[in-house]
Amino acid sequence: MKLERDLIEGVLETLRTLPDAHIEPAQSASGRRDKGYDARIDLHIGDRSICLLVEAKRAVYPRDVRELVWQIRRYMEPGAPDASAGQRVPLVVAEAISPGAKELLREEQVGYFDSGGSFFLPARGVYVYIEKPPPKTLAKSLRSLFSGRRAQVLHALLMHHHKWVNVKELAEQSHASPATVSQVMTELERFDWLDMQGRGPSKERLLREPGALLDAWSKQVAANRPPALRRYYVPATKPLDLPGRLGRALEQHDVAYAITHEAAAQRYSPYLSSVSQVRCRLTPGRAADEALGTLDARVVNEGANLAVIEVKSSGELLFREKLDDVWLASPILVYLDLLRSEGRAKEMAEYLRHERIGF
């Protein structure tokens, strides 16, 4: 109830900032189940009178929107209570509304307000659209979903998006626990990106919307700080030959690695005429230092032709592929890395996605 009151007060404060607006006190619909909604706000703006019928929720995801729209249509029918109140506009208020849910609500011409201050009001003669950063609760949830072991589960799903998988299979593929996999599945179901079949331990999922998942991951990556790079100059080596030399040196010292960024994308789907720097994910330690030493690699601040990204776990090297005797990060990780790079890297990322990833 407190959350509902706080959200409605947030709506009222936003409405008061509109020019020539007058708002009558919100009326709660508590105890009146025939109403179908939680509160009513009468808004007068200019010569327009609008009755906002408020539906309060804690959080709204795409899978919730269908039920919400069905419920809203029931109390928006001509014979429903308040049908004589003039222009009526449904308004969903929630602590957090996911981007996908907002898009669906806009398509259905249903208003919304979240605790971050985003507001959409589609009324005849009065149209308000305010988009603000997601509230901290949703932002934190998304950061958690696209990091650590959970990100490994998403990575596995994207790599096997055309296959039905159960929790056990996905846990083995992603090197994550079954509990972590189950948590990720619950989150993705809220976004309505999965198809499901079966029950219990044999229940299987299919990633129906791989493109939407990758888009969401891309946005999260763009908002995060890029990983730290250790920059080196390897003398007497042409950029085209450096991945092979580096790979042989690392393998001789039993160091797990994966070439990424432009050097990897160029091997998956050639796009640039040349690549001046090689970026590599590797497991740090004495063995890695010794391998770099055999190449006479020198730490530099400028003029680097090799950049090293130290991985915290083997999970960051999942689904690497060996092409021309060189281990490359998976196309998914290469794509995400390119989005955080500079120059023409973003163009290269989109080309890689179109030509190699395919969704």
Rank of each mutant, 00 (worst) to 15 (best):
Gly343Ile: 06
Val126Cys: 09
Arg205Trp: 15
Pro243Gln: 11
Arg150Ile: 03
Ala287Glu: 05
Ala123Gln: 13
Lys346Tyr: 11
Asp114Thr: 07
Ala307Gln: 08
Ala223Gly: 04
Ala96Met: 06
Val89Ser: 01
Ile130Lys: 13
Leu145Thr: 08
Val93Tyr: 02
Ser177Lys: 13
Ser269Glu: 06
Ile97Asp: 03
Ile8His: 03
Tyr127Asp: 11
Val89Ala: 03
Glu107His: 13
Leu272Glu: 11
Arg356Cys: 03
Leu323Ile: 07
Ser314Pro: 00
Tyr335Asp: 10
Phe113Asp: 10
Val110Gly: 01
Pro78Thr: 05
Leu213Asn: 06
Asn301Gly: 14
Thr180Arg: 12
Pro235Gln: 06
Met185Leu: 15
Pro133Phe: 14
Ala151Ile: 06
Glu350Val: 00
Arg124His: 06
Glu316Asn: 02
Thr260Asn: 00
Ser174Asp: 08
Leu43Pro: 02
Gly148Glu: 12
Ser202Asn: 10
Leu104Phe: 01
Asp114Asn: 12
Ser341Asn: 07
Arg320Asn: 04
Ile23Trp: 08
Ala85Thr: 00
Leu138Gly: 01
Ala56Asp: 04
Thr17Trp: 04
Lys57Cys: 08
Leu317Thr: 00
Pro81Trp: 14
Gly79Val: 02
Cys51Ile: 09
Arg208Met: 13
Gly116Val: 07
Gly117Asp: 13
Val93Phe: 11
Asp337Met: 05
Gly315Glu: 03
Glu24Gly: 00
Gln87Cys: 01
Ser115Lys: 09
Ile130Val: 13
Ala265Lys: 09
Leu318Ile: 09
Tyr127Phe: 12
Ser174Leu: 07
Glu107Pro: 00
Gly10Cys: 14
Pro201Gln: 13
Pro134Ser: 11
Arg33Thr: 08
Val126Ala: 05
Gly315Tyr: 04
Leu105Gln: 03
Ser276Cys: 05
Gly10Tyr: 12
Tyr75Trp: 15
Ala56Ile: 05
Val65Leu: 09
Tyr268Met: 06
Arg143Pro: 12
Met348Tyr: 05
Ala228Asn: 04
Glu187Gln: 02
Leu207Trp: 09
Gly36Ala: 09
Glu131Ser: 07
Arg267Pro: 02
Val326Ile: 08
Ser30Asn: 02
Ser98Ala: 15
Leu323Ser: 03
Phe191Cys: 07
Glu350Phe: 08
Ser276Arg: 06
His175Lys: 12
His253Asn: 13
Glu172Arg: 07
Glu13Lys: 08
Gly86His: 02
Met159Tyr: 01
Ala263Arg: 00
Leu246Cys: 03
Ser273Lys: 12
Ser144Asp: 14
Arg344His: 04
